[in-house]
């Protein structure tokens, strides 16, 4: 007795063959979602109590990162400025701006402004700002063009593969220490060489390789070891 039509043979074979692609597509979709801003929030502007513009304060006024993020060179945490730092200037300027009302209110009452954390690493990852700053990792290497961000967002996915990309080859990203806070730093090129200790560099790899030695970076084996970041 023939239950199925003969074409079922072809269909079943096509289905088995097609299943490979369906399963592959499922894996691909899962990986794509995992890396997408839906999960990482990369590029997503978060709501803040005051729409603070890094673009205005950094590029427009030329204020150094460290004016507000005072502990970035010496501590694991870059530091979110207290309301008083805002009031250093805004006690004098834009004193009636409605946008700054929460800042004035916070300064008067002593209650903290509740900012939304933007660059948030998972709690199982150990991270220290100061070591990165002191080994020549520029602010915008990780944080992106903050001087062009009217509202703050995280540029990077902050996922492990992103961390490892640099930890596996730090020479591709390092810059001289005095350029770490320069938001418009450009990698050395033949038209714009970078000078370190009297030597001119025209490509990132030779500069980075020398900086790795100069700043005494640990070996790649060390900085890609599990316990470097998961302590």
């Amino acid at each position: 007795m023939q239950i199925f039509h003969r074409s079922t043979n072809t269909l079943s074979r096509a289905t088995i063959y097609g299943a490979i692609f369906v399963v592959a597509a499922l894996f691909w979709a899962a990986a794509a979602i995992q890396r997408s801003p839906y999960v990482t929030y990369a590029g997503v502007r978060r709501p803040q109590p005051v729409p603070f513009s890094h673009q205005h304060h950094v590029a427009g006024l030329g204020i150094d990162c460290r004016y507000c993020h005072t502990s970035v060179e010496t501590s694991s945490f870059a530091g979110i400025p207290p309301t008083k730092t805002c009031m250093n200037c805004h006690a004098q300027i834009w004193t009636n701006a409605a946008l700054l009302e929460p800042v004035r209110e916070s300064y008067k009452s002593g209650k903290s402004l509740v900012w939304t954390r933007v660059n948030d690493l998972p709690d199982f990852a150990y991270f220290d700002h100061s070591i990165h700053i002191n080994k020549g990792v520029g602010c915008n290497t990780c944080h992106g063009p903050v001087d062009r961000m009217p509202l703050m967002y995280n540029q990077a996915s902050l996922q492990m593969e992103w961390c490892l990309e640099c930890h596996r080859a730090p020479e591709k990203h390092l810059r001289p220490r005095d350029q770490v806070f320069n938001m418009r730093y450009e990698e050395p090129s033949s038209s714009k060489p970078v000078e370190v200790d009297g030597k001119e560099y025209t490509d990132q790899l030779s500069l980075g390789t020398d900086l790795v030695k100069k700043y005494k970076l640990r070996t790649v084996t060390d900085i890609t070891s599990c316990s470097t970041c998961h302590r």
Binding site: V58, G60, I63, D147, N182, M183, R184, S190
Partner: peptide, 18 residues
Amino acid sequence: LGSGATLPVVENKPAHEE
């Protein structure tokens, strides 16, 4: 102009030639 975040243009430096 007006951006202290940038470094001054370095003058009198011959363009590096390959």
